[in-house]
Design a protein around this nucleic acid. Sequence first.
DNA 1: CTATTATTGTAACAAAATGTTACAATAAAT
DNA 2: ATTTATTGTAACATTTTGTTACAATAATAG
Lengths: 245, 245
Amino acid sequence: MEEGFIPDVTRANGKGYIHSIAIDAVIFGFHDRQLKVLLLEYKSTNLFALPGGFIMEKEDLNNAATRVVTHRTGLKNIFLDQFYAFGNYSRYDPQPLKTIMTANGITPGDKHWLLGRFITVGYYALVDFTKAVPAPDGASDNCKWYDLNKLPKLMLDHKVIIKKALECLQVSLDQKLTGFNLLPEYFTMGELQNVYETILGKKFLRAAFQRKMLGLGILERVSKKFTGKAHKAPYLYRFVSAHKA
Amino acid sequence: MEEGFIPDVTRANGKGYIHSIAIDAVIFGFHDRQLKVLLLEYKSTNLFALPGGFIMEKEDLNNAATRVVTHRTGLKNIFLDQFYAFGNYSRYDPQPLKTIMTANGITPGDKHWLLGRFITVGYYALVDFTKAVPAPDGASDNCKWYDLNKLPKLMLDHKVIIKKALECLQVSLDQKLTGFNLLPEYFTMGELQNVYETILGKKFLRAAFQRKMLGLGILERVSKKFTGKAHKAPYLYRFVSAHKA
DNA sequence: CTATTATTGTAACAAAATGTTACAATAAAT
DNA sequence: ATTTATTGTAACATTTTGTTACAATAATAG
């Protein structure tokens, strides 16, 4: 049975799910020198939203996030990090969900569990743009990549959630070398530099960037990439986590 | 009315609180070259726990955390940072709370809201040990400082929560200069170095540490501290956030 | 086949940050 | 006045980072 934002019409009474808590996923991809975010568009409404979901009664919080991201991207073993719980009272607004439910043929009572106040736990995922296969859920028209700089109008506080996710990504890029998760297995130094420059919003000098990355001892030089262009072919590298002592 | 872990007997039915979500606070202090954590001991049980609480129906999540920490320490304007939401199913164990409630003369039914599964949002606070006045809540005997290295047996996964809080504190010390929040307004360079060494678990060379700290341009030299010992008196410094451009 | 073009990899040097040693300054005790 | 313990910082060494320059090279143009 399809798992989606509206969990399953047979469970519309909330049975099987923990109430008042949701998870939302900011799924980042990288393409064309741009950071992308995966968004859902809801049927017959003009509402865009982050992929999200609810926690099942006996499910670990982090597993709920993994489940959501796996379903939306078709990918397993995704890099996923919990970054913040959003719980301002001001984010409570039943209207968007009421609209979505109505558009899906459900007429909820005012006490419907999905129309109550929710605290949402934010996760960000880093995926290989070329591998992900965006899949809408039962209540949404579309699941598509959007340029981080050209986001459509988003539901509730989802824009704030994305902003915070980006800030956390920027920190983790420096500290935990997470950037590789946005690239395919093999990549050039230039492509890696693009990822860093785009996410951190600043330029690096090529020589220093390369020296630093190679100095970390986590890159394996694999082969060359012949682009068909009139210049020296760059090397392809691979990320190897187990670096020698 | 006293706010505590058991919110208020008149609200024992859960009215007024969001169910399934709690907050827990790791309140750090610094004394005698040691990091301290504020813990509650529950009446007539051998259970120690982090100060925690629940979110009121119209209350912001972060405000709930502030409220709890303010009540337990008597302090306002506390440095407080949300660091992680703990939501493993394995942390669900109604027994400890049932014991506490029984010891407080409450005999809850098995469906009592406090005996359900909770996801807790962890916060850590940094307070001036000399200013805080630990206060137990209605259901606890004691609210006391415990040495981080000599923690008593803790309820549920509270030890895991403290461990994660420390890891986040270590990162924020480097990045956000949060360490000053653990010291009184005026402090010596040696005291500051102690804080850094204790939290990060490593030694720094005095000369380099001092040069680095002064180089940040966030310390104002105020006066001297005459300790009564037979040696040069150290300067007292003050943290000034607004450093000149 | 050679010269040209665009880009890569890295050496070489400069500058800044950090690590280390040493020593003068000084508050209190002797 | 001398000694003791500790502080503040200068001076130098080492490491890291910033910058410039140049050889290497894949494709193209002549």
